[in-house]
C-alpha cells in the first residue's frame, strides 16, 4: 500500500492568515484552485511524492493556520520540519511585515537547519500589489532565504517552490550539511533506502514515556 520513496521530508507552510497557504497546498496536491476556502483550523495535512534530482521524495506537508489563536496548536508542528514555505500576500503589507516574526518562530522552533523558502503569493493580483519584488528579494537575501513569487490561483511557481525547497534540502544532505539520521531533522529514509539504514528507520525515541 505504501509507496516507495527515497526520502521523506517534513514540510511546513507558515505565514499570516489569508496569505493563501492552504490554497498553495491545495494547488500543489490537487492541481486545482480552491475557490471558496475558509480559514484553516489548527493544522491540515497533505502529502505528495515528487521527483527531485533523480530521487523520489515524499513530502509530508503540514499546512498551519495563520490565525493567532491557533498559534499554540501550530507551533507544535514546527518541530522536526526539514523545510518550510514562508508565505506572504503581495497585496498585503501587513503579511509582509509579519515575516520576521514568523521567521524567528520557525528558526527557533524547528531548528536552525530548516530550509525556508519565501513565497510571495497572489502574483495574479499584480494590480493590487503592495510589496514589490525587489523589496521582498532584499528581505530574502538578508535572511538567507530562497525567494519566489507564486500564484495559487494560476498555479504559477507553486510546484516550483516545493521542488526548489526539496532540492536545497537534498543537496544539503549530499554535502553532509544535513544529517538525516539526526533526530528531529525532519528527514526520514524511505523504503528504497531502508535496507541500508534500517537501524535508524524508526525515529521514535525510546526514552519517552515508558511504564514505570
Amino acid at each position: 500500500m505504501s509507496e516507495s520513496y527515497d526520502y521523506l521530508f517534513k514540510f511546513l507552510v507558515i505565514g499570516s492568515a489569508g496569505a493563501g497557504k492552504s490554497c498553495i497546498l491545495h494547488q500543489f496536491i490537487e492541481s486545482k484552485f480552491k475557490d471558496n476556502s475558509s480559514h484553516t483550523i489548527g493544522v491540515e495535512f497533505g502529502s505528495k511524492i515528487v521527483k527531485v534530482g533523480g530521487k523520489s521524495v515524499k513530502l509530508q506537508i503540514w499546512d498551519t493556520a495563520g490565525q493567532e489563536r491557533f498559534r499554540s496548536v501550530t507551533r507544535s508542528y514546527y518541530r522536526g520540519a526539514a523545510g518550510a514555505l514562508l508565505v506572504y500576500d503581495i497585496t498585503s503589507r501587513d503579511s509582509f511585515n509579519a515575516l520576521s516574526n514568523w521567521l524567528r518562530d520557525a528558526r527557533s522552533l524547528a531548528g536552525p537547519n530548516i530550509v525556508i523558502l519565501l513565497v510571495g503569493n497572489k502574483k495574479d493580483l499584480d494590480a493590487k500589489r503592495e510589496v514589490t519584488f525587489l523589496e521582498a528579494s532584499k528581505f530574502a537575501q538578508e535572511n538567507e532565504l530562497i525567494f519566489l513569487e507564486s500564484s495559487a490561483k494560476t498555479g504559477e511557481n507553486v510546484e516550483e517552490s516545493f521542488l526548489k525547497c526539496s532540492k536545497t534540502i537534498l543537496s544539503k544532505i549530499e554535502t553532509g550539511e544535513l544529517d538525516p539520521e539526526r533526530i528531529g531533522s525532519g528527514i526520514q529514509y524511505g523504503d528504497l533506502k531502508h535496507l541500508q539504514t534500517n537501524n535508524t528507520a524508526r525515529r521514535q525515541p525510546d526514552c519517552v514515556c515508558r511504564p514505570l
Partner: peptide
C-alpha cells in the same frame, strides 16, 4: 496515524 504521531495534544480553539 500521521496526525496522531504528530499531535501535540494542544487544545485547538473553536
Amino acid at each position: 496515524r500521521i496526525f496522531l504521531e504528530n499531535e501535540s495534544w494542544t487544545h485547538c480553539p473553536v
